[in-house]
């Protein structure tokens, strides 16, 4: 096509993009995998199947999945209310949804800890019910839900805003109640956005560090997450072990993202 050469700057923008991507992202990430590959498969296996790594992996992926699932439900509800209803304070609430994006994770970490600690505002009521808020796997889940749920709101919201009312009117004329219309007409349209929101929340949660390490209490085998385990290896100058755990973590999360992407393509194709 001769058309694409009309606009100048291909060489320059290509150069800057690839150069910056290379030195900041690609070379460093390859260094990680090369470092990890320096150890044989036997060593890999030994590190990745050690009880401490397995416990941390279970907590990291388990709590992230649970938090992303809860974020999806809460996010759907909040997005619906913000898009569909008018009420005083709506615009402020809409703006505040982004708070977890803008609030530094360490700040989120210490303030959530103070609230959910056994003496905290919410923690003391949880303690009365026999639930330990902070310093438990449940605390990890709370922090990850806080971090994750704006992703769901912000991916579902634009889809809801663009949704015309025609289908809903048709559904009502054909005699469907509001709940049926929601389940059969509105919800299917939202599924791809909900899956994207879930995926973003999940991916972010797996790698999350700052907000979790304060509220988790960091007990090995109990409330230690994978990123913290990497830091622990680094502090003992075990570079190789840190690289292996990091590579394993990256491979698993890339694989999960790939699977969810695949699922989404399937769904997109079906609903069309």
């Amino acid at each position: 096509m001769g058309k694409k050469r009309v606009i100048p700057g291909f060489g320059l923008s290509f150069g800057i993009t690839v150069f910056w991507l290379g030195i900041i992202i690609l070379i460093p990430l390859s260094a990680l995998f090369i470092k990890a590959a320096g150890l044989g498969p036997g060593e890999w296996w030994k590190i990745l199947t050690s009880a401490r790594v397995l416990a941390a992996a279970k907590l990291t992926f388990g709590a992230s999945a649970a938090a992303a699932a809860v974020s999806t439900v809460l996010g759907l509800l909040v997005a619906w209310v913000l898009v569909r209803y008018q009420f005083p304070g709506r615009r402020i609430l809409d703006a505040i949804v982004d708070l977890p994006f803008a609030l530094p994770t360490a700040v989120a970490g210490i303030t959530l800890t103070s609230i959910y600690a056994p003496t905290g505002w919410i923690g003391k009521y949880l303690a009365d019910m026999g639930i330990q808020g902070a310093y438990s796997p449940f605390g990890v889940f709370i922090a990850l839900t806080f971090i994750g749920f704006p992703f769901v709101v912000r991916t579902v919201q634009p889809v809801m805003e663009d949704m015309g009312l025609e289908l809903e009117e048709a559904s009502a004329i054909l005699g469907a109640g509001r709940w049926t219309t929601f389940r059969r007409v509105i919800f299917p349209v939202l599924i791809p956005a909900l899956i994207t929101g879930f995926t973003l929340a999940f991916a972010r949660a797996i790698g999350e560090y700052g907000s979790v390490i304060f509220i988790s209490g960091n007990l090995p085998m109990k409330t230690e997450i994978l990123p913290l385990l990497i830091v622990a290896q680094l502090e003992q100058v075990k570079y190789e072990a840190a690289a292996v755990i990091a590579s394993g973590m990256l491979l698993v999360s890339f694989f999960l993202l790939f699977l969810i992407n695949l699922l989404q393509r399937r769904l997109n194709w079906q609903t069309r």
């Binding site: 992202i25 460093p28 990430l29 260094a31 990680l32 973003l200 991916a203 972010r204 797996i206 790698g207 999350e208 560090y209 700052g210 994978l226 990123p227 913290l228 990497i230 830091v231 680094l234 840190a242 690289a243 990091a246 973590m249 990256l250 999360s253 890339f254 993202l257």
Partner: peptide, 12 residues
């Protein structure tokens, strides 16, 4: 980078 843990970003 969105899919990479900040800790790994430091580690590399």
């Amino acid at each position: 980078p969105f899919a990479v843990s900040p800790v790994i970003a430091g580690l590399v």
